[in-house]
Design a protein around this nucleic acid. Sequence first.
DNA 1: AGTTGGCAGTAACAAAAGTTACAATTCAAA
DNA 2: TTTGAATTGTAACTTTTGTTACTGCCAACT
Lengths: 210, 210
Amino acid sequence: MLTDLKENFTNIFEDALIEEINDVGTLKKVKEGEKLIEIGDYVRSMPLLISGAIKILREDDDGDELLLYFLERGDTCAMTLTCCLGQTKSEIRAIAELDTTLIMIPIQKMEEWTGKYKSWRNFVFQSYHERLTEMLETIDSIAFYNMDERLVKYLQNKQKVTNDSLINSTHQEIAYELHTSRVVVSRLLKKLESMGKIELYRNSIKIVSL
Amino acid sequence: MLTDLKENFTNIFEDALIEEINDVGTLKKVKEGEKLIEIGDYVRSMPLLISGAIKILREDDDGDELLLYFLERGDTCAMTLTCCLGQTKSEIRAIAELDTTLIMIPIQKMEEWTGKYKSWRNFVFQSYHERLTEMLETIDSIAFYNMDERLVKYLQNKQKVTNDSLINSTHQEIAYELHTSRVVVSRLLKKLESMGKIELYRNSIKIVSL
DNA sequence: AGTTGGCAGTAACAAAAGTTACAATTCAAA
DNA sequence: TTTGAATTGTAACTTTTGTTACTGCCAACT
């Protein structure tokens, strides 16, 4: 775990903090598709992402989903931060998008370190900033763009996160994450294919040029 | 200013911090409709809201607006926090919704106080939490609700913030903030009126029961 | 009083998105 | 091999939202 830490956080945290993380953190590996947090859960530890990716989803009362953003290497979950400090329940659902490695830090350390380490404070503030920015982008998408543009953004985003131009998703799965219907997704994907921008297969989509 | 501070923040900040704020902060009064921050501005000081309300707006490339949320008494601007620390430009526009009194704090104090005062750290984290929560609510609104429901929420929110069941807005102004067209707003307002939930006047709307 | 500009009401239409229904295909399990 | 479930394609239709155009009304100003 120490090597993981040094590889990913050595420029961010001072050595003493890396040591402490190594002492109290626990390594956790999750498989693609595995659920990390459910809406309403109490959060007891904070994740640092070593590798992989996690998708963060919002859900309304009817069970309709919406993808908010992805967490990647070096990220942490801003929602968790606030939940830990405020002792409130999770507002979001977190699911592993890829096989993912995390270091879990007990929440008690949170407050201790914010007083003790400047680098930790900066990291936490930086995380908040990134998450707020991503939320703004999500708002831009749903408020200012039509579904065809949102779909393109979604595919581009997915390609970037998975680092793979072959996207292994069904139309239904995409529809859930964009909060629309399968028929709409199929329709728009077909249009993109006819423009030569993607190729459609069963259970997967090949991105040609978006 | 000291009385303002003690009245609004005495349970939140320790006395020594109140003193410091009193030393370095400057009192600022803005009139309703006055612009506080424009998108792209660099932020040089952090506001603490003493009284009044500020609306936070997002805008896309075409100049289309969307109301994100209101700041009220005791709030601060989470966006400002991150902008200060990261030296980045503002992503949002801030306009006084009511006549408003603020205390402006130079950004240099930000980092100093996060190291020095636990209550300040908690306040900053709490602010982030509240803003993330409000952003989630905004996302819920535009992702999961139709325009008629969004309009009702908008009116309710406006009533709460201004503490007045008479809303002094034109249909066009409401349309801007919900990012729709004037005709749509007029149509839906008329429907609400015919249901007896509101009364329509020139330049204002009376909320009867929503 | 007459003019003007902003505001609101409404009809008619267009576009975007959502819904229902059904057929065709693929793939894995019985 | 057959069955059945999941996936995709597509047509037809509805609902929601956005657009254009025109009207009347009010208030301020000359």
